[in-house]
């Protein structure tokens, strides 16, 4: 039929424009890297079995972790408030309560041994720069250093909750939330901003966040961006590979590789997806869409029957 042939021509040229302008041009403009499944293959294998009891002594003692890190589940409070910590270290050292659940085991090992290397920020802390990574390398407590690290990791895993019970917010807070704000979820680098009764208290909170951000700027070189819309602006592929390997997509960036395991990375991405486009909204869209499609299909059928009826008299 002639009309269908014409339709085919129109569809052909429209699709040609679409394919050239969207998938092809975007493919050329935005280079992607492959997902590696959060396996951190460049880091050495772990072949020692750790002992949590010895690990606990090391974490509290010779490892000196608690000098900077709090471990709330073990009753160890932060040594200073967030603002003071950020002025000392650049950023608040994370609480270690769920570290064993959200970070990859191989990564934790490498981190304790040589933080700058595991975090993939050695370019920032070269000998020439005169700067040291705020977390010092663990030099060993006199025994087999790999065994000692395995013990510490075993301890962190023993106190951590089941990884399935970690919420997207917790994963996000640990991995991203101490450097990035997300204003659409009311998240500041100092945590979720509480509701204040007095305007004055709210302003004080904001002022503290500004001071924190100044410390962060000094440490990172610039203020890390707000992440509210990033999932939409960069897409799932970019976000996932960027969290896994920041240097791979943005060479020279001061953002560290955070070392999440695959499960927690997925939760972190879920948090970012929800800040851009909440789950409920996506569901509402699908639901509404189906209703509208149903209506339009009925409309088209009735319109077709009407047209046939009217045109019977014309030809």
């Amino acid at each position: 039929m002639k009309e269908l042939k014409i339709l085919a021509v129109v569809v052909f040229f429209s699709l040609a424009v679409y394919i050239l302008v969207e998938p092809i041009a975007h493919g050329v403009m935005h280079k992607t890297i492959d997902k590696q499944g959060f396996a951190y293959k460049d880091l050495p294998d772990v072949n020692k079995k750790g002992d949590a009891t010895r690990g606990k002594d090391l974490v509290m003692g010779a490892g000196a972790c608690t000098g900077c890190h709090s471990i709330e589940v073990a009753g160890i409070a932060p040594t200073m408030d967030a603002l003071t910590a950020s002025s000392s270290y650049g950023v608040v050292p994370p609480d270690l309560s769920i570290a064993g659940a959200i970070y990859d085991e191989r990564f934790l090992h490498a981190l304790i041994k040589n933080p700058a290397k595991a975090l993939d920020v050695e370019h920032k802390f070269t000998p020439d720069s005169g700067k040291m990574h705020p977390m010092s390398s663990f030099g060993g407590a006199g025994g087999d250093i790999d065994q000692e690290i395995a013990d510490m990791v075993a301890y962190l895993k023993s106190i951590a909750p089941d990884s399935a019970s970690v919420t997207p917010t917790q994963a996000f807070e640990n991995a991203c939330g101490r450097c990035h704000e997300v204003r659409y979820t009311n998240w500041t680098q100092m945590g979720e901003k509480p509701k204040f009764k007095k305007e004055r208290d709210s302003l004080i909170y904001d002022a503290n966040v500004l001071d924190y951000q100044d410390n962060l700027k000094k440490y990172m070189g610039k203020l890390p961006p707000d992440l509210s819309m990033k999932y939409g602006a960069r897409g799932e592929q970019f976000m996932s590979t960027f969290v896994e390997n920041p240097q791979g997509l943005l060479h020279g960036t001061s953002m560290p590789r955070v070392g999440l395991n695959a499960e927690s990375a997925e939760k972190t991405l879920q948090y970012l997806h929800d800040s851009y486009e909440p789950q409920a909204m996506r569901e509402e869209r699908d639901r509404t869409g189906l209703w509208v499609m149903g209506f339009l299909l009925i409309l088209a059928s009735v319109a077709y029957l009407w047209k046939r009826e009217v045109w019977k008299d014309l030809h």
């Binding site: 509208v292 499609m293 088209a300 319109a303 009407w306 009217v310």
Partner: peptide, 15 residues
């Protein structure tokens, strides 16, 4: 009558 039929097909694509 034909306009409206074509239009409803277009609206399916649009929505």
């Amino acid at each position: 009558s034909k306009d409206i039929f074509v239009l409803s097909v277009f609206l399916i694509f649009f929505f």
